[in-house]
């Protein structure tokens, strides 16, 4: 890089690296990269780990990854935004994933989703104002035999209705 081009970006990276030295999670993340010998093809694996550690992929975190893997920042950002699984915004304390796959859809998953949307005033992909719940949708979680399925905080729950779903999510949000 040309010395004359040193700007705010540079300073930002410096700040990130400084901050990283005091945060254990960055150490774990770096160890994970080392396991893959900092190979470029491990980018997605690294992003998975980063999201697991930090909950979401903040810009500074992506900058850290691009620096350590020696990849252009645009590539890291391009990959992180291509895949639905990665989120660049903080998530709520709880998550509710409504499966909108075919089997769940024909069995009324859209009614379950609409009820939650209506009741909590959130759209899929958003988090409630109190930060308690993120409402998400999935394209089949492979539990079609028990459709419609909803995943509450990682637990797959079978045969949901608007009522059962509301009962569950209302426990989490401040009324």
């Amino acid at each position: 890089m040309l010395a004359t081009h040193s700007t705010s970006q540079r300073r930002r990276l410096q700040a990130v690296l400084e901050h990283a030295s005091g945060d254990k999670r960055f150490k774990i993340l770096e160890a994970h990269m080392k396991k893959f010998q900092f190979r470029h093809d491990a980018l997605i694996e690294i992003l998975h780990k980063a999201q697991e550690l930090f909950g979401y992929l903040e810009d500074d975190l992506l900058l850290f990854i691009s620096c350590k893997l020696k990849l252009p920042a645009s590539r890291v950002y391009g990959v992180a935004t291509f895949y639905h699984f990665f989120t660049l915004k903080p998530q709520g304390a709880h998550t509710c994933v409504v499966c909108m796959g075919t089997a769940c859809y024909v069995k009324g998953a859209n009614k379950v989703l609409a009820a939650i949307q209506e009741d909590l005033k959130v759209k899929p992909g958003e988090t409630t104002a109190d930060g308690q719940l993120s409402l998400l949708t999935a394209r089949c979680i492979g539990a079609c035999g028990i459709a419609p399925a909803v995943v509450y905080d990682g637990t797959v729950t079978p045969r949901q209705t608007a009522e059962s779903a509301l009962e569950q999510v209302r426990k989490w949000v401040t009324p």
């Binding site: 691009s66 920042a73 645009s74 291509f82």
Partner: peptide, 24 residues
């Protein structure tokens, strides 16, 4: 690079920053 996908795809500069701030 390109960010996002489908109809939401968009050309980006570095970490989706304003072009004028790009180091690279």
């Amino acid at each position: 690079n390109v960010s996002g996908r489908g109809a939401q795809a968009r050309i980006i500069t570095d970490l989706n920053i304003p072009w004028g701030e790009s180091d690279s």
